[in-house]
Design a protein around this nucleic acid. Structure first.
Lengths: 208, 208
DNA sequence: GACTCCTCTTGACACTTCGCCAACAAGCGG
DNA sequence: CCGCTTGTTGGCGAAGTGTCAAGAGGAGTC
């Protein structure tokens, strides 16, 4: 034993510590409901004092929001990697890319989108909202629409509608296992195709 | 003052008291998030001791579940009024009927399906799940499928996927006002048509 | 190598909320 | 008018959260 020079705890850079706590929190929120995860649990898994969580994130709820926010943010970079080609090819590729991404993040993705909530929370709602909006924007651009389109808001709304189906399909696939990936791919790409090819042209003339 | 014969509290029949507490809880859960409603609040509005809530419902969560359960219970009667005819006609009529129904129940419907939640709850999930399942069953039967179909579970899953889109569309229409009824009708019936005519036949051959 | 100082980290305190339980009293039946 | 059933109360203990001042790690300095 080389003397009692062993520190009880290690001092980390704020960003580092913050990230560590964040990771542990993400894991826990992924496996249990919000209310069933105590700040003490998070602190324990991070090997840290409970108070430190408040120091870095202010509130348990804020920490949760941060986790959700990151889980829902999808990289705009990969969206550009979509091939040109027929509409069918593009919808196919887009859905494929999306399913790959979701397949990796499984737990987080599911936890974030799962509507099974006790009670409502304005902030969470807002975050989900913006994430949906961004995602819809990416999809539209990938499908060849222009962000400056006069009916952009309407298009966003339509695709967001489709987003509801995407989430539900993800749950059937990853959570319940009632559909396999291939089937989910078929539904989603087929419907996306219909949306772009049939629905959007029609919806434009129903604006009143 | 006719003497001090005034009782501090009135003794009610269990069902009566239970219902009274239930009503107050439903009101509060309707206006604030779950976590922001304390049992003390409920007790106060009901003019009752806090402990009585536990006596009748066991747990705050159980009380909440009871409220949600009742909110999701809808009338299965009107579903049989569906016309025969081409697939397009039937999808059209089904969506129309549905939008009518939703248009009336607005608040209730929105409150029930709104995914704004912090955390997950197994029991709530189960309740929403069964409601979705029942709804999917109705849709399938309306589209001419047989409940004894060998792939019934799979069909249910597919339609439940569609259900996600229905909910999202409802929110765009009723909550955000980004789409009008006519547009929502177009999306939903068009997609439903695609689902039944194109997707389901294909999905059958992808079961591995 | 010892000292200093900055700030990251801890541990305890105050407060709120929830479930439990024993005692109390409303009001019907005798 | 009285006693018994049971609906109802009120307080206790446990659990969880946010705050804060004090303590300790460790890099920089002489």
């Amino acid at each position: 034993m080389t003397a009692g020079s062993a520190p009880k705890w290690r001092r980390l850079e704020p960003d580092e510590r913050r990230e560590q706590i964040f990771t542990c929190a993400a894991e826990l929120f992924g496996e249990r409901p919000y209310a069933a995860v105590s700040t003490a649990d998070i602190a324990a898994r991070a090997g840290v004092a409970r108070g430190l969580i408040n120091h870095y994130f202010g509130t348990k709820r804020e920490l949760y929001l941060a986790v959700v926010r990151r889980a829902l943010t999808l990289s705009p970079s990969a969206a550009a990697t979509l091939p040109d080609g027929s509409l069918a090819e593009r919808t196919d590729a887009a859905v494929d890319w999306f399913l790959d991404m979701v397949g990796k993040q499984q737990k987080m993705w599911l936890a974030a989108i799962t509507p099974e909530g006790i009670g409502r929370d304005e902030e969470v709602e807002r975050i989900l909202d913006e994430a949906d909006r961004d995602a819809a924007g990416l999809v539209l651009e990938a499908m060849g629409f222009d962000r400056g389109d006069e009916r952009w808001e309407q298009l966003i709304a339509l695709v967001r509608t489709y987003g509801g189906m995407v989430k539900a399909a993800s749950r059937e696939w990853l959570d319940r296992g009632t559909l396999n990936r291939s089937q989910v791919h078929t539904v989603l790409s087929q419907v996306l195709y219909t949306l772009v090819a049939d629905v959007i042209p029609r919806a434009r003339h129903q604006s009143e």
